[in-house]
Design a binder for these strands. Sequence first.
DNA 1: GAGCACTGC
Length: 938
Amino acid sequence: MAASPSQSPPSDHQQNQSSSSDDDETNTRRDADIRARDAFAKRLRERDDDQTKKKFKAEPVSHESDRSKLSVEELRKRSRHVYLKSRKEKKIDELEQELADEDYLFKGVKLTKREEEDIKLKRIALNLAREHDQAQQMENVDRYHMPTGKSDETSKNDRYREDNRYSDAKANGQSGQNFEQRKWEDEVIHTALPHFGSLDKDAKSKQPKYDYILDEEIQFVQQLTIPGVNEFLQQKEKSKLHEHEDENKRKYRTLLESRKTLPIYKFREDLMSAIRDHQVLIIEGETGSGKTTQLTQYLFEEGYCEADTEDEDEVEDGDDDDNIKLPDGKKKTKKKMMIGCTQPRRVAAMSVAARVAEEMNVKLGREVGYSIRFEDCSSERTIIKYMTDGMLLREFLGEPDLASYSVLIVDEAHERTLHTDILFGLVKDIARFRPKLKLLISSATLDAEKFSQFFDDAPIFRIPGRRFPVDIYYTKAPEADYVDAAVVTVLQIHVTQPLGDILVFLTGQEEIELANEMLLERTRKLGTKIKELIILPIYSTLPSDMQIRIFEPAPPGGRKVILATNIAETSLTIDGIHFVIDPGFCKQKTYNARNGMEALTITPISKASANQRAGRAGRVAPGKCFRLYTSWAYQHELDDNSIPEIQRTNLGNVVLLLKSLGINDLVNFDYMDPPPMETLRLAFEQLYALGALNHKVELTKLGRRMAEFPLDPMLSKTILASETYKCSAEILTIVSMLSVNNSIFFRPKDKTLLADTARQAFFVPGGDHITLLNVYNQWKDTNFSTQWCYENFIQFRSMNRARQVRDQLETLMERVEIEILSNPADTIGIRKSICAGFFYHTAKFSKNGMYKTIRHQQSVLIHPNSALFDQIPRYVIYFELVLTTKEYMRQVIEIENEWLRETAPHFYKTKKLDDDDKVKKMPKVLGKIKAELERNYS
DNA sequence: GAGCACTGC
């Protein structure tokens, strides 16, 4: 069924799809591309010529410095030049060779458009390099004038150089505004010179490291020349202020008009017919194409929400039953079908739903709604539903065939979240026995082919976006200290480039604070010589009021620079960004399945990520992206894509969920990229040990109850065990507090002592879990006060989140039929419950003064922030192992070893754990799992 | 005596 319409290869289909008008359009687009590229090449040449002229006059200076005594700096500089020169030659050779190879190998072969463009670009690059080379043979040319951070004596020479430059410019008849502007800028730079790089006195910073090579230009297609949607709306609203048209009507009409300006609008007919013809369609839509908001509306207008009468006979027996139950027995009361659209993030689901409701002129939560954790804003009448991907996954539990949906759109599929990856396998499966179900997978450019392959060669439909071109600059040589380099680049942009905000990507809070300080210090020294520069940090744990500041516009004549973590890569968009600085790193969580240890490590980003970052500069106007790594590094050292989450995360929860959906063979599940065998094995092993799976690897009753909770299986088990010890209320609190990742205690840098004292005041005997309980209960006693949090160095946001989680868990308790009982004094019962879920995470004090984990015999320490830090309990249970400066157990409680036997008799030997304590051997069934996994993965 | 990328259910 699914196969027949999609037999033609994707590219063919694409061509068939395009009508003659589209052909025209692609032609004009191509022409525009070529023109743009030519103009670009011309600009480059002109600039090079220009600079060659300028530098030509500077020659005597370099001779002069030749004669002077050679300093170490000078020697370094020279050796660097030699290196750069030889490196460049090598690169040019490589490029030449590559092109020659391509000529030879692909002669007469018809290449795809992309390949052709690739070759074309390489040719242009080569030509430019040659031209530049020729220019350099005349002179030792620095391609850009950049602040150099040289010491006073050399800067004098520099000034001489510059002065010559100006006389030269004047001689060429250059004058007027541009000239003055440049002169002014350069003066600013020169007065600034002694201060640049003054923080680090090492020679490195004194080198001309601020040279950028304009290596390539990413061609973001600028399809339409009309103004952006927002601008359009504003204009409309302003112009109609004095009209007497009905407010709502007017608003609706403007919305309708602005919908038509979206790039996707032109493709509507083709798109709809493609959806009619094919069950699965991959939609390759660039940002700004309008797909997320328009697609659902088009589908609705095409009647995809109408109850399908044919389906009634074929597969929808269940629904028939529902209808028969209706008292009137009306046939036509059959529920309308829904169009579902998943998003990876909550905010996106909410805001897009709100926008669509507005465009359709309905109240949000009725015909158009959204569903995210903690908030279901949809109703019986809802026909267009936006939701987070995890939410749809949960819906499978109640409706395994998703019968109430006629269309499913998986948006932002290229982000490859754990949940979308699982969804892929599931929706592909239900599409097989629900031929009427339409499946739309929407993704960014690069991965479309891969998605197509996964969905049995589903056709790809391409929709252009609306974006501005972004110039990409690379450094000539790798930067050792990217924070410093980023700071220097910020200042450089600030003094040399026209107004427009700067976005810097750093890896974490620490780097952001460091960069912030460096920038403050250096701008302070520059004083009023430079324009105003507002520095704004942003990362997820930053208090909300500070976060909001990044959206305030820069002061007139000034500029803002935003120092951000990865949060600015996808999660939030900031308007007005013209410049992006990308050092090329991010923090990633790594999990070592061998010893259960987690660590956050700084790793290079992927190409996809780098391009995403660059794209952030081209949202409102043409932009520039400065990459603090070399073009070679981009080409050869960065992976194409980031490793999908499914391959680097604990799968306990997912395995449990899939098991409860009746998917028994998880090894042969249809993964787009299968998870590592070791991770699956570990998940099975843990679930077996927790009693969620039996010896036949089937889901047990306990496992079914555990699956109800959106938690790690160990936490779910803890909750279920609290029934036995009659302390479910306390356990719910503890589990909720644990699930907001240790961001409860606030520790500002300038008040560490006060904060630590405040934290220690919460300590209670038993350990950290009980301490967390104490914190929550005290907060509750103040009626969840913000002020109390502030006074006690507690993060209100985290507490609020814990409260939300707790509320949700409490309602889920009804489903598993556990009464909520409170027994606050019985910390033994509380700790035994935790033991029942976390017996895997036991560590015993050993002779060497450290703890050893029972499972892996890993040497670990109690975290210094723990309530048990200066105590030495013989047995402890930990919540997690982290590798930071040392191997630490985080969130620890003291236990008695008898409790292990009591709470996990199948896991621990019945004898008392002693010096030679050993974990019971895993039964053979796990050996079987392992063998099966290995067979399937070989 | 330490140190916290980002999501999501």
